[in-house]
């Protein structure tokens, strides 16, 4: 069971349109099965929350899942649709989930 208590909104946005400090979950993607499997193995799947550390408008995007940071090319990030979550502290990407436990999103 997830330790997070997200309150997803119905809005879906491409990952590239999220701002720094935004928290979101993966809603869907138009990636190939192989790419999806790679991202899932790296820790980015439909059930996990992540924080945007570097917004990907026009450039690479950096997200943080627990203690891990992933860099995504704009082309890849554009094809990932996200569902933004409520966030208590959007000022600092690394402090957005003060009570999260690594790996508990699985």
């Amino acid at each position: 069971m997830s330790a997070f208590s997200p309150h997803p909104t119905p809005l879906k946005l491409p990952l590239t349109q999220l701002k720094r400090g935004d928290r979101a979950m993966v809603a869907s993607s138009s990636l190939s099965d192989e790419d999806k499997a790679t991202l899932r193995a790296m820790g980015l799947d439909e059930s996990c929350q992540f924080t945007v550390c570097r917004a990907g408008s026009g450039g690479p995007c950096i997200i943080q899942i627990d203690a891990m940071r992933l860099g995504l090319s704009p082309d890849l990030a554009r094809r990932i649709m996200t569902r933004p979550c409520d966030c208590a502290d959007a000022n600092h990407c690394a402090s957005a989930t003060p009570d999260a436990i690594p790996g508990a999103h699985l």
């Binding site: 550390c53 943080q64 203690a67 990407c93 690394a94 957005a96 003060p98 690594p102």
Partner: peptide
């Protein structure tokens, strides 16, 4: 005491 948002993360940011 889990504190994702340690100083090292701010430096990394």
């Amino acid at each position: 005491p889990n504190s994702l948002g340690a100083e090292s993360d701010r430096l990394t940011d």
